[in-house]
Amino acid sequence: MGKSKRNSPKPDSNRAQRLAQRRAAQEQTSAAVTRPFEGLAAECDLVALREFVPSATATLKLVPGVAAQREVTLATVLPGAVAALVRAGDEPVGFVGTQMQFRGADPSADIAAAILWTQSAEPGESLNSADAADGGPRLVDVIDPGADLELTVHQDFDWWVPEGVTPDPQVAATIEQAKQAIMPSARLDLGPDSVGAAWWVDAGEKAHVRWVRPEDEDALMLALARVHATGGLHMGEGSRFAGSFRTHGLLVPVFDLDPELHPTEWEAPAREFGARLAGALASDEPMTSEERRSRDGLRSRQVTLR
């Protein structure tokens, strides 16, 4: 007798479809680009916009050779979490979202494909999924890799509708619902010599700073351990180190903060912490036993975002 086929699902059965979907998801995860925005000056801000900033926009500087028929604005999320849309007007503007409903294995390629789509799409059209082609352009090929993002941080989603236009009731209700759920946020201004992107957010009972850092993860973890061992892993009174998470190939230290203070009041303490961390990064001294214990403890409080 042959082997039982009890565990082999029929090709068009529901179980077969679920297994195929699971395999496709696993293949996509394994093919995912570890550090999609590497090589871009705006890498840390792009990671922040993609992962946790609620509402922000920035006009992109496209590279020569891209058919720049219209201006392109990068945004955190667009209505319906579409990949892109072209807003009608005397001078149509393309909008591209970083937080898309349908995500591919390479966010950089997705955003690049959406940018190129805006250059030929008709005003009023929207793109649900970027569908980046294998081997196609990535963001580093489409925008100026040396340019920082000139960000505008919003505390609502009123920018979804052009100025002077009254939205229909359904759109107005959607904007109001999104506005009720948004958490106030701000990008800390730490000066021209600052490293990475430090973002403040008010989560209600407490506020946070999430500081996206560009350094090698092991080097940064060692530096954090050195600072922790000397009692300097904080942003001053009313703050504490909460842990860190890894996303898009970068490590993001997180600090809990007193929510009563305005975000600008955390800028000086953040600069002081940044100086302590820079000193630790520059050290090549052998690790002490206390620093090793600190590193092990910090790693136990680290998570990875997919």
Rank of each mutant, 00 (worst) to 15 (best):
A24F: 05
R271K: 15
G249H: 12
A178F: 12
A31G: 04
Q302I: 01
G89C: 11
P145R: 07
G232H: 01
M221K: 09
Q99P: 00
L257S: 14
P169K: 07
T118H: 02
C44E: 15
A223K: 02
D12M: 02
K179C: 10
G238Q: 08
G191K: 05
T59A: 15
I175C: 13
P253C: 06
S4M: 03
K10N: 01
R295N: 09
D284T: 11
G97M: 07
N14H: 13
L220P: 00
A198M: 06
K10D: 06
E260T: 15
S244T: 11
I115R: 04
A56P: 01
R293P: 01
A41N: 09
G231N: 05
A121N: 05
V171H: 07
E291W: 02
A42F: 07
F95E: 14
R23I: 11
R18V: 12
K3L: 13
A75I: 11
S30R: 15
V82N: 09
R295T: 00
G65L: 05
G196K: 04
E150A: 14
A172N: 10
R271T: 14
V53S: 11
Q99T: 08
R276I: 00
M100T: 09
A83C: 03
V140W: 03
A114Q: 09
R240M: 09
R50H: 12
E205D: 15
G249W: 09
P145G: 06
M183Y: 12
D218F: 06
S185Y: 02
G135T: 09
V303E: 11
T59P: 09
A132M: 08
W117H: 06
L220M: 06
F102M: 13
L224T: 03
D193I: 02
D189G: 08
A42V: 04
E290T: 04
P92W: 05
D189L: 13
E260M: 13
L257M: 12
R138F: 01
M1E: 09
G94K: 04
P123K: 04
E43I: 02
G89L: 08
R187Y: 01
V153P: 08
L40I: 07
L46E: 11
S129M: 10
M235C: 13
V212N: 04
D90M: 04
G243K: 04
L251N: 09
G65C: 03
P145F: 07
W199L: 04
M287F: 01
S194N: 08
F273I: 02
R271I: 14
D156P: 07
L60D: 08
Q155G: 13
D131V: 01
E176G: 00
V171D: 07
L78W: 04
S129N: 10
E267Y: 07
